[in-house]
Amino acid sequence: MKAGREARRAASRAGNSPALTTIARIGFAASGLVHLLMGYLSIRIATHQGGESDQSGAFAQMVKLPGGMIILWVTVAGLTALALWLLLQASLGIGSSSKKRWARSLVSLGKAIAYVAVAATALSLALRHPTDSATSSQQASGTILSLPGGQALLIAVGLITAGIGSYLVVKGARRKFHEDIEVPTGHAKTAIEVLGIAGYVAKGIAIVTLGVLFIVAAIKTNPKDASGLDGALKALVALPFGEVILLVIASGLMAYGLYSFARAKLARL
């Protein structure tokens, strides 16, 4: 019990470090740029111009910007710091008897893992060893399917992924993102709410689609059906009015990017 309290105090002190919180804010801004580029690439796919609309494609586009490699390395640092800050927040639930605190810790841990994965993708490109997310997803799915009970495990991964996407949709629709930021007043509040709602709902739908693809891959026992976020967005194009749906999601991803820029300043850290 005492060790848990000491761990929480240490995590709280580290999490309040001005240097760490400053770099973490840069991480939110970097995430914003990534989502803007993902939205742009999704528009290209919706209009049949090709490309990859996931983080890998976004980072490839980032390198093409003026000073792109510098921006990419700053992105790696910012996302890594943001993941570290989230890990420290997750550790605040250690030794606690509060179910609410444990739930928040699990959410922070999940976010930290996601940011670590995105940072690793950016780092691989910065080191000139780019990775393809579709291939990575297929390899991971193939590995899971090869395990005992692998089909059930992959279905579970799909359900968890779809659950995360549903959570983001609900978070946007119910404006739960207010808990993450210092909400401004006046017209700024309206703008933040519009961007937050559109951004979270669009991102959630994309992730739900990814979860469905994992489940389809498990049912068909074909890892190629689990083709990552890029594959999920491209799968939407095959639906009736798919181009329109993807254009709406692309706009939402760009809205999330703009919201992330605002969050870089307004986040409760």
Score class of each variant (00 low, 15 high):
G78D: 11
K64S: 13
L65N: 01
L88C: 06
V74R: 02
S56A: 15
A30N: 03
Q49L: 14
I26E: 10
V63L: 15
V63F: 09
G95N: 04
R44E: 10
Q55T: 14
I26L: 15
F28R: 06
M69V: 12
S53H: 02
H48P: 05
V34E: 09
G78I: 10
Q61F: 07
S56W: 03
T75V: 08
G27Y: 03
M62L: 15
M62I: 03
I94G: 06
L92V: 11
A90P: 06
P66A: 10
F28Y: 15
A77T: 08
V34R: 06
G51E: 02
A30L: 03
H48L: 13
T22H: 11
L82A: 11
G78R: 05
K99C: 09
I71M: 14
L92P: 01
L86S: 13
W73C: 04
A58M: 02
A60G: 14
F59R: 06
A29M: 12
Q49A: 14
L65T: 08
M69D: 12
K100V: 12
T80F: 11
L82F: 12
A90R: 04
G39T: 00
T22Q: 12
I26Q: 12
V34D: 01
S42A: 15
S98L: 06
H48Q: 13
I45K: 08
G50L: 07
G27D: 07
M69Y: 13
W85S: 15
G68N: 05
W73Q: 08
G95S: 04
